[in-house]
Design a protein around this nucleic acid. Structure first.
Ligand code: ZN
Ligand code: ZN
Ligand code: ZN
Ligand code: ZN
Lengths: 153, 153
DNA sequence: CTTGACCTTGGATTAAACTCTAAGGTTTAT
DNA sequence: ATAAACCTTAGAGTTTAATCCAAGGTCAAG
């Protein structure tokens, strides 16, 4: 049995983080001491490990809640569900990756054209590009029309 | 002269966004009507264009405030300042890119090992990897194993 | 018995960039 | 003259993942 300080030290996270995970339904200690202290057992510790590994591959805490709900009822759940979560996350990560790659490309172009000297920025090529939408330097982003069900009357 | 609705329609943003930019010191209308309506002139419109282009290359609104403070006083500022902002942002973008690439790699590995079928997830390789920290599948962030001798960028 | 380390709770704060609401004033067209 | 459309303001809500705080309870050592 671990107290909150012990478990948090074991995984190098803050005790607050464990309380936060508890508040959000990710990990509750299996028992409490007479005076109300949280007591985590080995299973709790394993569950925390699962959470931290899922975080390490890019899942949000909400995703992890979904993953855990499958994990605790594995035999009645399908591989397809698990793989679906992974593939959805992969798509999100790749979309963000594409956006950042576009940023990096534009920023590199901007950086390359500027002398970076201590002379006046009066004719700085970076500022000029931002003023005039130089198509060579600032790639335009595609319009993606995500159908996004946000109806509110 | 544009009223807020006209300018926002022109750039396909919300009127709220223009008020938000004003509150945050990025763009103030050059005048107001007798009844207090915001009136934007051509210079204001150009400034908005600058803001939107800077956003399109990955700058945050705070970065843009810095950029604008240089822009309005170009002749007394140096290229080095501008290039510094771009290079700092590029470093941030590249750091994030590296993290997301790590996520994408791990997620692809996880996805590839799972059958994705409608059979029980009892022995799902994804769940097993998350339970047991399979080093093949979940790359650790602390390890800087970038010996990916992939294609040159 | 007191000190200090540790624990409890709920709530506030952080960062980013909006988005929305409520309650009311203005303009324009019929 | 009235309704629709547009405008004003301050302020709250959204998302993510914590982190910090205050006020107070518990426990081991001296
Ligand atoms: Zn220069
Ligand atoms: Zn320059
Ligand atoms: Zn399977
Ligand atoms: Zn599977």
């Amino acid at each position: 049995m671990y107290r909150i300080g012990e478990l948090s030290a074991l995984y190098d996270i803050k005790a607050d983080t464990l309380r936060f995970y508890e508040k959000h339904g990710l990990l509750s200690p299996s028992s409490r001491s007479g005076s109300g202290y949280r007591l985590y057992n080995q299973d709790d510790s394993e569950r925390l490990k699962f959470i931290l590994r899922a975080k390490a591959v890019g899942f949000s805490l909400n995703d992890i809640a979904d993953l855990l709900s499958i994990e605790v009822d594995k035999s009645n759940r399908a591989c397809a569900e698990v793989k679906g979560l992974v593939d959805t996350k992969l798509e999100q990560v790749e979309a963000k990756l594409a956006e950042l790659q576009h940023f990096a490309t534009s920023l590199k172009s901007l950086s390359n054209t500027c002398c970076g000297g201590s002379d006046s920025a009066e004719h700085c090529s970076i500022l000029e590009a931002l003023e005039s939408s130089d198509q060579h330097i600032i790639a335009k982003k595609e319009h993606h029309h995500f159908s996004h069900s946000g109806h509110k009357d």
